[in-house]
Amino acid sequence: MVEIFRSVINIISALAIPIFIVVFLGWGLVKKVKVYEVFVEGAKDGFNTAVRIIPFLVAMLFAIGIFRASGAMDVVVAVLSPVTNLIGMPAEVLPLGLLRPLSGSGSMGLMTELMTTNGVDSFIGVLASTMFGSSETTFYILAVYFGSVGIKTTRHALPAGLIADFFGMLGAVFIVRVLFGV
């Protein structure tokens, strides 16, 4: 069952982009749109959008960089671990949960390390990969998406995003405990 689901998704993922291009440009042709001209017109914004993101991403990433390099994560983990122990989250994966919203490459490294030291198919290995797979780099997305349209007052996006991350982690711990629990 899982196998079929996986292969179907894999096929869709592989074909999606070519089909997408054909459908969009083909439809344009049918509707007598000057496809080449309109494409170039749209593509022109690519540069501006990318450049507009720079200050937002610099602000976000350098703060995250300082936080990570200082080793402050160890301190936060020490403070939080009594709380997370109560909900059945192993102390080993707490740093991953904290780093996940901050840094994509950093948390990927941490996940790989957890799987190497504890075994890929161990409880912690499965939990770490589930936690990584069921969340996104919230701070990065916030900086890029809001940065692209010059939004500085982000209102409730960050608290809501962090609440989502928190429940994602809880959900991951819960389901992995139920299915692969020790």
Binding site: F20, I21, F24, L25, W27, G28, V33, V35, V38, F39, V40, E41, G42, A43, D45, G46, T49
Partner: peptide
């Protein structure tokens, strides 16, 4: 963005 513009 180019492809989307055509779609639009």
């Amino acid at each position: 963005l180019g492809i989307m513009k055509v779609g639009e």
